[in-house]
Design a protein around this nucleic acid. Sequence first.
DNA 1: GTGGTCTAGACCACC
DNA 2: GTGGTCTAGACCACA
Lengths: 139, 139, 139, 139
Amino acid sequence: MDASLFLVTPASPDPIYRQVVEQVRRFVAAGQLRVGEGLPSVREMAEHHAVNPMTISRAYSQLEAEGVLERRRGVGMVVAAARGAGLTAEERLRLLEPRLRDVIREAGDLGLAAGPVCERLHALFLSPAAPHPRAPATR
Amino acid sequence: MDASLFLVTPASPDPIYRQVVEQVRRFVAAGQLRVGEGLPSVREMAEHHAVNPMTISRAYSQLEAEGVLERRRGVGMVVAAARGAGLTAEERLRLLEPRLRDVIREAGDLGLAAGPVCERLHALFLSPAAPHPRAPATR
Amino acid sequence: MDASLFLVTPASPDPIYRQVVEQVRRFVAAGQLRVGEGLPSVREMAEHHAVNPMTISRAYSQLEAEGVLERRRGVGMVVAAARGAGLTAEERLRLLEPRLRDVIREAGDLGLAAGPVCERLHALFLSPAAPHPRAPATR
Amino acid sequence: MDASLFLVTPASPDPIYRQVVEQVRRFVAAGQLRVGEGLPSVREMAEHHAVNPMTISRAYSQLEAEGVLERRRGVGMVVAAARGAGLTAEERLRLLEPRLRDVIREAGDLGLAAGPVCERLHALFLSPAAPHPRAPATR
DNA sequence: GTGGTCTAGACCACC
DNA sequence: GTGGTCTAGACCACA
């Protein structure tokens, strides 16, 4: 998988290393990164996104500790077997639930009902630029 | 508005003062806090939620700097006029969009399509164990 | 002297009572308030500017303590003799110096030279709306 | 930029954190702090001026909220692009106008005319005992 | 009664 | 190394 498929936003409120960790986890869950497939090297990733290599390294180490990735000598990090790889749609929906609850909480404070919120989500989902913001990031 | 209508979660990843800031902003947007209406005093809020007064004070100061609140000497903080108060449903939906985009981005990584995601959101919305029974109760 | 000649700005960063104190001091220095002349009553002043009477009272008390005003039974506060009343132009210029130093300090940080700053001051001075912002405040 | 170029006066009526905020704003406006340039670290600034780090931190946070500064993770605060950085002399004169209007208002109360006030300002400007020998020295 | 400011010091997260 | 957050408590200013 190419480094350009990752979206890294240093100015974001959440830390860079976690942005990487979570994207890898999701790609693996979705089967977009297959078991045994290699990840971009630390150097490649760091240069592509202009961040400190230690930050990427830290993300990879955490994923290794979680059992999502494996260190292969001379090869780099590859997706490990047997840890949340290639989940079913239902399992992946569960992974998304915390974000859905965020939406519900804020919508409640804003006095918004389920109907309009779900409609707007659907509309944004299908709008052309939305589904894969990573793609244009290769500019 | 009573201090008990605010939800403060010290264990949350995002800081207490920002939880307060964002709730106030949303309550004001929703018209649940009206222009000119007073907020709980710093001390009241702090005692009710068992946090340091300075933490609340910091939230109020930030809201004052943003123009959402106004300091009335000897009275306390009140909702300022002319700053995102009492928005229309469409405007409030816009405020929610960043959260919706978060959902879409993660769903994209997870290889989930619009349909199931929206259905799940709708289901969670209507589930009885809604995270904030408070919000709908006051409406 | 009429209450409407005072400019009171509750939203200002400096406290209301001090706004009153300093205006009275300047009016007395300029001879615009003469020795023996009465000031608006606390009630009149407070109602006209929609502030707490205690605030006005506090300002008057401070001026009395300073010897600028005198309490006359049944009459109210009047300008006292022998305390900074009817100063010469040179003396009044000295009273203005702290404000001039504020200008110089900020201009220095901003990298502005004496010439343009003095020119701008002169221009603003002569612009129609500037010299007596109090007058339109009677609307 | 060195911490010693800032002037911090704990005894001043206006709070330390705001003294810092305003100086940074002016230095940035004047181009004395360039876009991308780093500021003294919170600790360095705090030690140099013998104030609590939180006081400095508070100033920096406010400037970040205003968009004047940017947080660079692991690096510190740097001047952000595109927010009142490197203004023209005319723009900087505009920033000074509120102070000029203060002068005009007080001069009006004191019954002073434009001529003598501007002369006095000019004289003080050029007087050798300028309040901040630092500012002109660095230019 | 209200909020504002500051301190000293702890602990955390990120790079 | 960087900044962020929070606490406990003091003291002040204003209305």
